[in-house]
Design a protein around this nucleic acid. Structure first.
Lengths: 215, 215
DNA sequence: TGACTTCTGTACTAAGCGGTACTAAATATG
DNA sequence: CATATTTAGTACCGCTTAGTACAGAAGTCA
């Protein structure tokens, strides 16, 4: 993320596009697309309406940009969290831990996942939003699937383990955590859900290990 | 649901309150709370604004009534689907089948669960909505938990099986199905998720059975 | 310096919003 | 029949919305 501060013609911007987009995301995250007005946005982004329009287009295209930006960030984050050479059961727990942290962190209370919390509502009547939501779900599945495949190749899972099925389940845990956070469940409840899910995914193997250790 | 058509004073209603509430649900389901105007509602409910206000109060209280109504209906439906004397693995598959059917059925495409699709967005800034969402998640967990406990007592699960953990997972499947439906995933994808999840929940037992049958 | 370019900020428009006052219509009651 | 009561429908209110016109400010460039 190098700042390429080329000498631009004309009056310089008084806002940072990245910061402004992040603040727009915050605003939409709390209120949803329809529930957040341009006055809200302009206030929270610290830029007046005409500048906002010049920079991001109309409300919908601003919203789509926040969605795509969020999606790209999370995609990278998940990939890096699942990468590395830790056993998947360990990496998975750590990943959920970080996700829970993010889902609980909001200025006005827990807000879960941005896509689950706001894009899902808009998805029915807005095809562009639906497409982003669809791709984000697919990408999450795929990230988990490749992680489970790799883990299986490393012998961390049984021969009968189905990476695709386990990945769908791992995604389901993310989705349920997003919803539970937004519904107001406390951190301990979210952690319990994530923990028991991971235990279940690896239960077969862990039991086999235990049998071998103390026969 | 007996119609108690008492002789009321004054001009008789030209609308059926239950039908009107169902139509309001439909409208909100597609557009969300903020995205659905009173004009939309009054058009779809087939009653003019003053009648709407007299019958259901303002927009928010109408929305809350649709949420509570939906919650009560689904609660009863899940309970009846999980009840009966079928093995839980069978009842669970049937339950998911029915849920998928409902999630895919919308006039303007698949819409998933009404609560997940609309209440989640409003939950951050509206405590009343958050409360209903919270209770609906808890109720679903509890319905599944009691079903898993009963199944365990009937010997359908291993001794180490944790009904609470399995219930959280079963709820997670419902949540992910709601989201996937709304994101546009086809029926086959939803069925695959549900099927493989059920298989995973009962995998331990099924494997043991297989071993016994063909040793 | 002066022309050109880009951003800022005020002020505005037209349309849509949630909500309501008021009149007419349709029933029960006496 | 007259009266009370409840609904239906029109028409409106004040406010908020998304989006824009325009003038001035703050830079670059020649």
């Amino acid at each position: 993320m190098v700042q390429k501060e080329e000498a631009r013609l004309g009056r310089p911007r008084e806002y940072d596009p990245e910061v402004a987009l992040a603040r727009a995301t915050e605003a939409f995250w709390d209120g949803g697309f329809s529930g957040t007005s341009l006055d809200d946005l302009s206030a929270q982004m610290g830029m007046n309406r005409p500048s906002l329009y010049a920079a991001f287009g109309d409300k919908e295209s601003l919203y789509l940009k926040t969605l795509e930006n969020y999606h790209a960030m999370r995609r990278a984050q998940i990939a890096s969290a699942l990468g590395g050479d830790r056993p998947l059961s360990v990496a998975l727990r750590a990943t959920y831990e970080r996700i829970i942290e993010r889902f609980l962190d909001g200025r006005h209370g827990a807000r879960g996942c941005y896509l689950v919390g706001t894009a899902a509502t808009e998805a029915v009547e807005n095809p562009a939003v639906r497409k982003i939501l669809y791709e984000s779900v697919q990408d999450l599945d795929e990230a988990f699937r490749s992680a489970f495949s790799a883990a299986k190749a490393r012998g961390e899972l049984g021969k009968r383990a189905d990476p695709r099925a386990l990945a769908a389940l791992a995604s389901a845990v993310v989705h349920t955590l997003a919803l539970r956070a937004r519904s107001g469940q406390p951190r301990a409840a979210l952690q319990a859900v994530a923990d028991s899910a991971v235990s279940l995914m690896f239960s077969e193997v862990e039991r086999r290990r235990n049998r071998r250790r103390r026969p």
